[in-house]
């Protein structure tokens, strides 16, 4: 269990982490909460919004709360935040080359969203240290409700991004209708996916509201607590403090 209040969850992802996944898998919520966690354990964190395909519910929506926590956000210029344009901030290639303590890149969905990564191939190939490319999976989404579906999306993302995915993130949820049974099913699903693909599961997620319903010892994988930040206007984000 981890998050801003509990620092002992076993997630250890220093340096550069690129978050990819299918459309609507929850990449942004995962990226934002991972940034908050990394910040809480004392790392200097920078997060880049590289979502060029999604018009709403992007990392940029959480910029104020991230900045208040001291997390640096790398975004298109303020005046163009809502532009329907694929703006690639030049600061991102610098972030890839020199991620420092902790850099998180939140990429757009599917192979369409990951295509932009190929444009950054020079920056990636110039790196000497290995880095994490994690594919977020929600088995309650169409197309990733089977191990085969997840692997097909992995191949499509790898083909266009010119990067190799080297870990999974399990993000099983039905948003407000998530129950602990969904978390347990997601855990088993990720174990099967890991076994078939030979890739490790970096962590799975559980919403803060459901934490009391699960015993963390049930899981042999680190657990990231999600404090939901990307909410519609009639709901409140979960306080991070």
């Amino acid at each position: 269990m981890c998050g801003p209040v509990d620092k002992e969850c076993g997630i250890d992802l220093p340096g550069l982490t690129v978050i990819v996944g299918n459309y609507g898998s929850g990449k942004t919520e995962v990226a934002v909460n991972l940034a908050v966690y990394q910040n809480a354990i004392g790392r200097r964190v920078r997060i880049a919004d590289l979502d060029l395909v999604n018009p709403y519910f992007r990392t940029r929506e959480a910029r104020k709360v991230l900045n208040q926590l001291g997390i640096e956000t790398i975004l298109p210029p303020e005046g163009l935040l809502q532009a329907d344009l694929p703006i690639l901030s030049p600061a991102i290639s610098g972030l890839i080359r020199q991620p420092g303590d902790c850099a998180i890149i939140d990429v757009g969905g599917d192979d369409a969203g990951a295509t932009v990564l190929a444009a950054l191939a020079d920056a990636f190939s110039g790196r000497k240290k290995p880095f994490n490319v994690l594919q977020v999976v929600n088995p309650y989404r169409p197309n990733t409700d089977s191990v085969e579906g997840c692997i097909a999306i992995r191949k499509a993302i790898e083909a266009v991004s010119k990067l190799s995915i080297n870990g999974w993130v399990g993000n099983a949820n039905l948003i407000d209708e998530t129950q602990t049974g969904h978390i347990r099913y997601g855990y088993q699903f990720m174990r099967a996916l890991s076994e078939r693909s030979g890739l490790p599961v970096a962590f799975i997620t559980v919403a803060k509201e459901l934490l009391s319903g699960v015993d963390i010892h049930e899981f042999e994988i680190p657990l990231l607590t999600i404090y939901r930040q990307l909410v519609p206007p009639w709901k409140k984000a979960i306080a991070l403090s």
Partner: peptide, 10 residues
């Protein structure tokens, strides 16, 4: 409205 199209729900 745009939210109906873009938001995710079960």
């Amino acid at each position: 409205d745009g939210l109906i199209g873009q938001m995710m729900e079960p």
